[in-house]
Amino acid sequence: MKPTARWIPYFLVAPAFAIFTLAILGPIIATFGLSLTDWDGFSTPSFIGLENFVRAFNDKVYTSSYGHAAIYIVATLVLEVLVGLILAGLVSAKRNTTFYRVAFFTPVMLPLVVISVLWSFLLNPDLGILNRILDQVGLESWKHIWLGDQSTALLSISVISGWIFAGFYMAIFYAGFQRIPSTIIESARLDGASELQLLRQIKIPMIKNLTEVAVLLCVTGGIQVFDLVYVLTNGGPYDTTQVPTTYLVRVVFRDQQMGYGSALAVILTLVVVGFGLIYNKLRTKDDSVVEY
């Protein structure tokens, strides 16, 4: 059916476009515009060209924050995705595993800030349970300032992240495993395949797409990690857990450098989008694999 007048489609699309412009396009353009200025949030912004971007690339804290994010991503790929896959393999291999599935998934349902506060109590160097337990069982030398030592702070955050999100990836992989026809599983069992062989040679290859999505989620989520780091260490000690988002918040909200912060936000956006595009390009579709 053709519209009776040429302007009608534009008229109908206009409300949605207006909302999109106000809520998404406008802020993106404004952020890019502000990134070219020196602005503290109060005064009139003054145009300084690409100076903020040059400063960002020379800012050791900012550039190293990507390194910290990379370490966090690698750690969480193991602690979240791989552990989630193993947990899914375990709970799908047995019957009556509802309790375990609920238990592993429960941390995902709690607000990240609540979990962060909870763990900061557990890891508190003076009053925390972990150090007290180590003390009680005679492992006093293992006691540590977990979140205050530059050698353990980022690792501690990664472990906590793994504790939370392994259950999330377990749920994704478990759902994938459930979609595999039982005839395939049963016939493999009849052929004498062990549960480990089933997992490695049948289940995992058949959910390849889900695994790729999980990796993409984990990596993009890792670049954007904020809550955990902000509450647990606030980027410290000595900026060794500073990730791009926490540094961005510090620059904008604490130091009130809106122009510079906007430049950091633009760079971060380009990195995330760039990664997503490259990842999609690298993904190859193998037609010989049957996926569910």
Binding site: N124, D126, I145, G148, A153, G236, P237, Y238
Partner: peptide, 21 residues
């Protein structure tokens, strides 16, 4: 100075002080 100085917040330090630490 407490070893945990850079890993705890100001309110946690106040609590430790009130607890006689």
């Amino acid at each position: 100075v407490n070893e945990s100085v850079n890993s705890i917040a100001d309110n946690e330090a106040a609590s430790l002080f009130f607890q006689g630490k």
